[in-house]
């Protein structure tokens, strides 16, 4: 899964710290020419800071994102579905490992990132603060949340930071399995018994608002990101990605005869843009700041795993080791 709707820190147009203008110029011309930046290259402090923030949020989202689906592994309907869901959840945790490594190359040790997650200091994708109430919720998550994540990640994989792009390329290949698996699961329910159809319809109604929140606040109200876009940290605007998602997936939802809970939703054929009810950004803000249905549970579960595993990791730890930043 699962990068989307990153929360960037307000910056004074990337000029928060005095930078060597000559180095900055060389750095920017490299990016403009499509070259990748590698860990040992010179980079502005602001670039480093925002990248760590973004990649770390992405990693946390993968880890936390595994939880709502993970609870359904023991109750998956049938052996094949159980195998597939286990594979998907393992992939998500694996993605987190790849992303933590990419963030580490920028100088933040893994332990610091995990501490920031479990103390509630770091953010992760807001959608995972909602519960997967039935099996059908896991189908909707696997199909539509992963679809949103792919749109975001394919864009980001063309960004400027080498280690992040390489991790994303690997991740995107696995995401395409998640998307197909999720679609298969939704189609199975939507073309099944009346009870199954009802389940998947209800799940779609529950998940539509978080899905609309997924790409983050509208460009009209979100933090200015011109510098981040010039530096190829942020690759597409939130609204553009939301439009792309609607364009690709609304027809696929409608062809199954499912109802999307937004009476205004339609495509304006002259502009090619989708019209929709503005998502409730107050609700988004409230949930991302800790007051959602599952925020406390997600962090408590993650904290518990960290605490329960601590003695095992400590037993294997060698006292004479020193930490080395991974190379790439």
């Amino acid at each position: 899964m699962y990068g989307g709707g990153y929360i960037f820190e307000e910056s004074k147009n990337g000029k928060s710290e005095a930078e060597d203008t000559e180095k900055l110029e060389r750095f920017e011309s490299k990016i403009a020419a499509g070259e990748k930046i590698e860990p040992s290259d010179w980079m502005p402090a602001e670039y480093r800071k925002q990248l760590i923030r973004m990649i770390e949020q992405h990693a946390h989202s993968e880890i936390i994102g595994a939880l709502p689906e993970g609870t359904w592994i023991t109750r998956a309907p049938g052996f094949r579905r159980k195998l597939a869901l286990m594979a998907k959840v393992q992939d998500e945790v694996g993605h987190a490992q790849l992303l933590y490594s990419a963030a580490e190359t920028l100088g933040k040790p893994r332990e610091d990132m995990i501490n920031d997650l479990i103390t509630g200091k770091s953010k992760y994708s807001n959608v995972f603060n909602y519960p997967a109430v039935t099996w059908a919720d896991t189908a909707i998550i696997a199909w539509l949340i992963d679809a949103g994540a792919i749109i975001n990640q394919v864009a980001n994989s063309k960004g400027s930071y080498g280690p992040y792009c390489r991790a994303l390329e690997r991740i995107c290949v696995e995401e395409s399995f998640h998307l197909k698996y999720g679609h298969d699961n939704v189609v199975f329910l939507a073309t099944g018994t009346p009870k199954q159809r009802e389940m998947v319809q209800e799940a779609l109604i529950r998940w539509w608002p978080p899905i609309m929140h997924f790409f983050g606040p509208s460009d009209k109200i979100s933090v200015h990101t011109e510098t981040l876009m010039r530096w190829k940290v942020k690759m597409a605007s939130n609204d553009d990605m939301r439009q792309k998602f609607l364009d690709m997936y609304v027809p696929k939802i409608w062809e199954l005869g499912l109802t999307i809970p937004d009476p205004l939703l339609k495509k304006n054929e002259t502009t090619g843009q989708w019209v929709y009810t503005e998502p409730d950004w107050q609700e988004f803000k409230k949930v991302i700041n800790g007051d959602g249905p599952c925020n406390k549970e997600r962090l408590a579960v993650r904290r518990n795993a960290e605490e329960k595993g601590e003695w095992v990791r400590r037993a294997l730890q060698r006292k004479d080791e020193r930490y080395t930043v991974p190379l790439a």
């Binding site: 490594s101 580490e104 040790p109 893994r110 332990e111 995990i114 501490n115 479990i118 103390t119 509630g120 406390k296 549970e297 962090l299 408590a300 579960v301 904290r303 518990n304 960290e306 605490e307 601590e310 990791r313 400590r314 294997l316 730890q317 060698r318 080791e321 930490y323 080395t324 930043v325 991974p326």
Partner: peptide
């Protein structure tokens, strides 16, 4: 019976080992 309150003992350097 998980507590809602964040842990006050953060994990230490190298608890997640070497690279």
């Amino acid at each position: 019976n998980l507590s809602e309150e964040p842990d006050q003992n953060p994990i230490k350097e190298l608890n997640h080992w070497q690279t």
